[in-house]
Amino acid sequence: MASENTNRLAVLIDADNAQPAIAEGLLAEVAKYGTAHVKRAYGDWTSTNLKGWKDHLLAQSIQPIQQFGYTTGKNATDSAMIIDAMDLLYTSKLDGFVIVSSDSDFTRLASRIRESGLTVYGFGQRKTPKPFVAACDKFIYTENLKEVTEDAPVAKTRTAANQLKGDSKLMNLLRNAVEAASDDSGWARLDTVGSIITKQRPDFDSRSYGFNKLGELFSATTLFDLESRSPGDGKPPVTHVRDIRHRAEK
């Protein structure tokens, strides 16, 4: 939606904990939720471990923030990110934060930012601890970003219909969200259904099942009807979804 793109976001990257290959896909994903007014990557840039990040910093206009590892075994980068995030929270007019890390140390930071009424988008690997995932409004696994960036053929990774239907947790999630958003006829706006799913599971992503869009996932299960409706007045069509069990209730 156009209104979403007006959101001012701060993108804070734990370069010690994130792969440089995600940079392009990361910022493309961030653009769906708003404009990155702040883009910073934290780490010890004198270390050869971060060599792969340098070209991406220039190409994506990301500001490197130097943080020396003063003490062995202590993560100074995390502390620097948290301090900067709190400074930005109080001094900048932002609508949300993007925290890029798979580290559970940012769990309390995410919770604190949300307590102030701002939105938190987390990006990390599938190994990211669940408490950090749950502390974000929306969490995107960076493995999904790599698939897009590296042009991997999505069709080969799609989960088959029988596997989708056999995933009881997934089916309950989809059906409950449709039911919660549906009208008396059983139809619900797909975008509303998506919002409900995200609130229940911040890390839910149709790309994890091999589908670029939520509607494609619903269709692949063969257990839902989808319908595109034109609201008129030149507005774009709106997709609606319904559990096929409502057919029998007619």
Rank of each mutant, 00 (worst) to 15 (best):
S104C: 02
T198L: 08
V241R: 12
T71L: 10
V38E: 04
K213L: 09
F106K: 06
A220S: 12
G122C: 08
A85V: 01
S47E: 05
T71H: 12
A155R: 09
Q63Y: 09
G124I: 14
N212T: 13
R40S: 03
S185C: 00
A85N: 04
K74C: 07
S206T: 11
L50K: 05
D87R: 13
A248M: 08
L94F: 06
K199I: 01
G96V: 05
F211H: 13
Q163S: 11
A36S: 14
I196G: 11
L109I: 06
R114N: 07
V38P: 03
K213C: 04
Q125H: 05
A220Y: 13
N75F: 03
V30S: 12
A23G: 03
L170M: 07
P202T: 06
K156F: 08
L88K: 00
K156S: 09
T157N: 07
D78C: 08
R175P: 03
L190V: 10
T157M: 06
G117T: 04
H240S: 02
F97E: 09
A85E: 05
T77K: 06
R108C: 00
R201D: 12
E150D: 12
A2V: 12
A180N: 08
T192D: 15
L94Q: 08
F218M: 13
V154S: 00
E227R: 14
D183E: 14
G215A: 14
I83L: 15
K54N: 02
K169Y: 05
G69L: 08
T71S: 15
L26T: 03
E179S: 10
L109W: 02
R158P: 07
F224M: 08
G96K: 01
M171Y: 11
P202H: 09
W45E: 01
T91F: 06
P231T: 00
E227H: 09
P131Y: 13
T46Q: 11
R8W: 09
R201G: 01
G122S: 10
P202D: 11
R189I: 10
Q66S: 04
V238Y: 02
A31I: 04
S61I: 10
S206Y: 01
I140H: 07
A21E: 09
K138E: 13
S206M: 03
A10W: 01
D87A: 10
P236M: 01
A188R: 11
A180H: 12
A152Y: 10
D78M: 07
E227V: 02
W187E: 11
N212E: 14
A248W: 06
L26K: 05
T6V: 09
T149K: 01
G34E: 02
F204V: 03
F139G: 02
A181F: 00
F218I: 02
G34K: 05
T157D: 07
A76H: 11
N75K: 14
T142R: 04
T192V: 14
S102F: 09
M81I: 15
Y33N: 14
N162P: 00
I62Q: 01
T128G: 03
G215H: 07
G117S: 02
A76E: 06
T198S: 14
Y90N: 10
K39V: 10
G73Y: 03
R247V: 08
L170F: 09
